[in-house]
Nucleic acid binder design. Structure first.
Lengths: 248, 248
DNA sequence: AGATCAAAATTGGTCTGACCAATTTTAAGA
DNA sequence: TCTTAAAATTGGTCAGACCAATTTTGATCT
């Protein structure tokens, strides 16, 4: 890669003793990235792959194993090995690397705040018509389920995902995805503990979402950021309040 | 999928058919996180682990495999399996999840900018004496190596790492770590292509670093953010300029 | 023909035992 | 004590077998 010449940096490549399984992993990842192996699709049985690759079953399995434990593939006994649904793909390794042994969830909340406010900013500047449509749809979904916490939460999550997507920044999207996924559980737990307040919170939340959307729609980045900032702060406080209220 | 009717969220746990290897993975990860398996340390041979866990070698290997391919463990034939050095631990899974098939590096630069400006902000508010000392040391390191691009770059990187650490936000630290690591290569390539300009860039950079540090030292979050913003914008522009200059 | 359901085939998960090549340990020889 | 060659150890791979879950098949009954 490096054009070298004077190059102080290593002109020599590490000799890599070919590890069979790694080579297979590489091929499979490429097939997936290339879209040849679509999400949900079943790949040939292990015994088939053995013949195709010309290797033993051990090697095939050792190649599949990391991909499975990273959530890219999914093994179902008796059925076969499948490419995981796009959502959640590569989530596990991300979560492993990012969220392993955290003390509390303060870091989580703080990082989320940081990412989402910036996401609102960029979404306002870059959202395409289809992004706006998707965001609006999620708002409609929330409005339709004000009294069903679980469904409301799903659409709430969708709202934030779509904003992240609208930034056209893949890294930002993935980050928000994984962090939101982690926080989601926490939110759900607290909401089910105080179901009577859920609807009130939902109404407040919905209003704020509309505000954010309006700012994004008019490409007002600063307003979008402010609105998102306000929304997340409110939501976080509400959830904390639910928690402390419960404890007393 | 939707957790059904009245019962908002599932009070029941998914029955997980125990996958032997997954259980082992969990145990190993825990041992590593708990520090019982320190970086660099050798773990028992596979055949030993078989006896200890009371499972076949296949299962042990299938447990080790994901950890190895994620860079957490390292297998050396004839020698044993070792816990990887702390640096870069869990980096690979993070990088896999976050940085796989990106189009360009615009997302990278943009995300870095977002993370680092926020890091400066929080570092200013939370830096402990030892953090300030570490940051100052990295600045000194830069000052001492103005004419050695490679060394300068190392201390430059250290500066940003230490700021990330000073935020006391683990997630932010890990993120900056992995993204910076990715960008680092890119920076190095460009700098070695125009070694004559390296020193001038280094001097500018150093001055900006001092500015950032001053703001952090006085706990002026806004100033720290502004200074970091300015620094990263300058640096990015300079590197872009180097690149276009080379192409002509 | 269509539906039902039990037997057969397929599939991922695990176990056992074996061999290879790289490495480490041991022990013999100088 | 130092060298060095043989032996033991170790991760990587292969082969064959069995299990349990699942899918497919095919015979039976309606």
């Amino acid at each position: 890669m490096t054009p070298t010449s004077t190059a102080p940096t290593t002109p020599f490549r590490q000799i890599k003793r070919a590890r069979v399984s790694d080579a297979i992993v590489e091929q499979l990842l490429q097939l997936i990235s290339a879209g040849i192996l679509e999400p949900g699709k079943r790949l040939p049985s292990e015994r088939d792959l053995c013949k195709r690759f010309g290797v033993g079953r051990t090697s095939v399995r050792e190649a599949l194993k990391p991909l499975i434990s990273m959530g890219i593939l999914e093994g179902r006994v008796g059925s076969g090995t499948y490419v995981s649904a796009e959502t959640g793909q590569f989530q596990k390794p991300l979560a492993w690397g990012l969220l392993r042994d955290l003390n509390g969830q303060d870091d989580l909340v703080e990082t989320r705040h940081m990412l989402e406010t910036n996401a609102a900013h960029w979404a306002a500047l870059r959202a395409k018509p289809e992004n706006l449509a998707a965001i609006e749809a999620s708002i409609q979904g929330m409005a339709d389920h004000l009294q069903q916490p679980a469904e409301f939460q799903d659409h709430d999550a969708a709202f934030h995902f779509e904003i992240a997507r609208a930034t056209q920044n893949q890294i930002l999207y993935r980050l928000i995805n994984v962090i939101r996924g982690q926080i989601q559980t926490w939110i759900g737990e607290r909401l089910t503990l105080a179901p009577n307040r859920a609807e009130a919170l939902a109404r407040t939340s919905l209003a704020q979402h509309r505000e954010i959307f309006a700012a994004i729609k008019t490409a007002d980045a600063a307003a979008a950021r402010t609105a998102m900032d306000h929304h997340i702060q409110t939501a976080t406080q509400d959830l904390h309040r639910l928690e402390t209220a419960r404890k007393r």
